[in-house]
């Protein structure tokens, strides 16, 4: 396991909800990352944001780790949930709230 792979793996395993994104939750630097941040903030979920723009190794490493060619990438309790499309689709269907709750992650508003 490469260093970056091990770092990604440990971050994913030590944070209930983690979002690999472009920019930070406070300052997203990509529309798609910003959409996922909005959804998580709307649900009042506590999560960690990792800015893949800070390291080319991280930016490529996360794509290799999940076999997913883009960011953002959302993980809940170690499971890869998806990118912007899937997270938005799940949120609109109420499935994201269900996934979070069944994973034991506090959700502020279920709407």
């Amino acid at each position: 396991m490469t260093d970056i792979h091990a770092l990604i793996d440990s971050e994913i395993k030590s944070n209930d909800v983690i979002l690999f994104m472009k920019g930070t939750p406070q300052f997203p630097q990509c529309g798609f990352s910003g959409q996922v941040v909005q959804i998580l903030d709307h649900l009042g979920v506590t999560y960690k944001g990792i800015n893949v723009l800070e390291s080319a190794e991280m930016r490529q490493g996360i794509k290799d780790y999940s076999n997913w060619p883009t960011t953002p990438q959302l993980y809940i309790k170690g499971e890869f949930i998806g990118g912007c499309d899937i997270v938005r689709e799940m949120f609109q269907a109420g499935e994201l709230q269900t996934q979070l709750e069944t994973s034991g992650v506090a959700v502020k508003s279920a709407s």
Binding site: N67, P69, T70, G82, D85, I86, E89
Partner: peptide, 18 residues
């Protein structure tokens, strides 16, 4: 859903994200 999208990305032979 993840697997479905990965099937599409595989069909695009590395163009996705590039």
């Amino acid at each position: 859903k993840v697997q479905q999208h990965q099937m599409v990305y595989a069909a695009l032979k590395g163009n996705m994200g590039g």
